[in-house]
C-alpha cells in the first residue's frame, strides 16, 4: 500500500502526474538528438561546384511518373505524391511510420539555372538532379588593361 502514502506526501497529487511530467521532460530532451534533420519531405542534400549544382533527395517508394520537377530562373520546384498501400478487409496496421500524401518543395540556388540542360534520375529511392549554371550567369574574368 504505498501509492496512497506517496499521494499524501505529494498533497494528493497523483504519482502518475509526476511520471508523465518526467516522460515529457525526457521526450523534450531527446527530441533534439534523435531528429537532427528538417521535417520537410523530401530531405535534400545540395552539392555545389563552380559551374553547376547537384541535388539529391531521399524519396523512397515513389513512382517516377509522379515526380514533377520544374525550374524557373534560380528556383527548383519539386512536387509529387506518395500513394498509400490500400488495406483490404481484415488487414490491420501494427505500425504505420511511413507517411503518405502529396508534397511540394522549392529550393532557391545561388545562381540562374540553364533549364534546358537539367538532368534528373531516380534510382533506389534517391532522386538526383543536375542543375547546370546558366552561361550568362557564370563569372567573367576581367582583364586589367595597363595604360
Amino acid at each position: 500500500m504505498w501509492w496512497p502514502e506517496i499521494g499524501r506526501l505529494q498533497r494528493g497529487r497523483s504519482p502518475w502526474h509526476d511520471m508523465q511530467r518526467l516522460q515529457q521532460e525526457m521526450d523534450r530532451l531527446f527530441s533534439g538528438i534523435t531528429v537532427p534533420y528538417s521535417q520537410d519531405f523530401p530531405a535534400m542534400n545540395v552539392w555545389i561546384s563552380e559551374n553547376d549544382a547537384l541535388i539529391t533527395a531521399e524519396m523512397p517508394g515513389i513512382d517516377p511518373k509522379q515526380i514533377d520537377i520544374s525550374v524557373v530562373g534560380d528556383t527548383l520546384k519539386l512536387k509529387g505524391v506518395r500513394t498509400a498501400e490500400e488495406l483490404k478487409e481484415a488487414e490491420t496496421y501494427h505500425r504505420q511510420e511511413r507517411a503518405y500524401g502529396s508534397f511540394a518543395r522549392s529550393l532557391k540556388l545561388p545562381f540562374q539555372i540553364e533549364s534546358g540542360r537539367v538532368n534528373a534520375n531516380y534510382e533506389k529511392g534517391v532522386l538526383k538532379i543536375e542543375l547546370p549554371r546558366a552561361e550568362a550567369d557564370k563569372p567573367k574574368k576581367i582583364q586589367i588593361k595597363s595604360a
Binding site: T92, R98, A99, G101
Partner: peptide
C-alpha cells in the same frame, strides 16, 4: 503532408566500420 524523419539507431555493440546507422521507417501490416 509527407514528412521525412531519419532516426539514428541506438548503439548496442559497436561496429567495426565507422559509419552511421539509421532506423528505417516501417509499416507493418497484418
Amino acid at each position: 503532408d509527407v514528412q521525412a524523419q531519419k532516426t539514428e539507431a541506438p548503439v548496442d555493440a559497436e561496429r567495426t566500420r565507422h559509419k552511421r546507422v539509421y532506423l528505417p521507417n516501417v509499416d507493418i501490416v497484418e
